[in-house]
């Protein structure tokens, strides 16, 4: 991640030392961005499959959602400095903290996914017993409720990253929620295509295609509107990951539209391409933020420009230091 320094405007600094601390979050948070999105995307597909009676799509996606959720919880707790204190997140509900908001969204989302997945795991010979039927009914209601919170799970992570001083995340705050929503839908739909036969997976294909299209569009818009931070996104590992993500997502989209309805293999290949594309996108954005804190220019140059513009704009210097927005 050291990378050579991209060319660009120079700014005075303290021996070239960063102004900000690089995030202490590790790869686990980048991986969570993916697994959290996947859990949300598959929950929507599973709940929908339940409603339109597509049992194999439903089963695969509830199990996938639960596995992604368990992975998410493990990754989130594992990244804490004091993992044994993870439950301190539940002391308060704090609207100013996207992490607190996310904690409560996940708390609302989790139990229904768990109940639905457990109900899918009941062996066939017990399914007609009354406890299994009761569980099934409960799981259905709770699973639908979880799917209703899934849009929050899929998108709050954009607020989590954007509401920081990290230039690579803060500067793309307008487009990031759409990028993450698209990425989550593409991965959820892709997972459905991977696990269910093409005859049942049509809604998963529509969802995946909409997600992939949204992700590609949001990514392009984001790149077009970037200021100085473009250097980080168009340089080194970050650029390679995001380019690979774009190619895989576009290929997955084409495969979803052209192949996935007819061939199981085509559906699986498209699903894997979409899942990989979604994961690479998350790692790319995560690393762009980390990279942007390593060079003081990304912090200092935009602030200095804003400050100078404010000083020029107001003779008495009243508004100096005021935010541009």
């Amino acid at each position: 991640m050291t990378g050579d320094r991209p060319p660009g405007p120079d700014a005075p600094s303290y021996y070239g030392r960063p102004v900000l601390k690089t995030p202490v979050w590790e790869w686990k948070i980048a991986a969570y961005l993916f697994t959290g999105g996947l859990a949300a995307g598959t929950a929507v597909v599973a709940a929908g499959a339940d409603l339109v009676r597509a049992p194999r799509l439903r089963r695969g996606c509830w199990l996938g959602s639960f596995a992604a959720l368990l992975a998410s919880v493990g990754l989130l707790v594992g990244d804490l400095g004091r993992p044994e204190r993870f439950h301190h997140m539940l002391r308060v509900a704090k609207p100013t903290s996207p992490m607190s908001v996310g904690t409560w969204i996940l708390t609302a989302f989790g139990p229904g996914v768990g109940a639905a997945a457990v109900s899918e795991l009941v062996p066939a010979r017990w399914r007609s017993s009354w406890p299994a039927r009761l569980l099934r009914g409960l799981a259905r209601a709770l699973g639908l409720a979880s799917a209703a919170t899934a849009p929050g799970v899929a998108t709050y992570t954009a607020a989590l990253l954007s509401q920081t001083a990290v230039p690579g995340w803060h500067e793309v705050r307008e487009e990031l929620p759409f990028l993450f929503a698209g990425s989550a839908a593409a991965s959820g739909g892709g997972f459905g295509m991977l696990t269910a036969p093409p005859a049942e997976a049509r809604p998963a294909r529509v969802f995946a295609a909409a997600g992939a299209g949204g992700e590609l569009l949001a990514s392009r818009l984001m790149e077009r509107r970037m200021g100085l931070i473009r250097e980080v996104y168009e340089h080194g590992t970050v650029a390679r990951r995001r380019r690979a993500s774009e190619v895989l997502t576009a290929a997955g989209l084409a495969g979803t539209v052209l192949l996935a309805g007819r061939s199981r293999a085509g559906a699986a290949a498209s699903g894997i391409a979409l899942l990989t594309g979604s994961a690479l996108q998350r790692f790319g954005v995560f690393e762009a933020g980390v990279e942007s804190t390593r060079d003081p220019r990304y912090t200092v140059v935009p602030q200095r420009e804003r400050l100078d513009a404010a000083r020029r704009g107001s003779a008495v210097g009243d508004d100096v230091g005021r935010p541009a927005r």
């Binding site: 979050w25 990290v166 933020g289």
Partner: peptide
């Protein structure tokens, strides 16, 4: 504090 690291960023 449980060391979530959000304050750092």
């Amino acid at each position: 504090c449980n060391g979530c690291g959000y304050c750092v960023s």
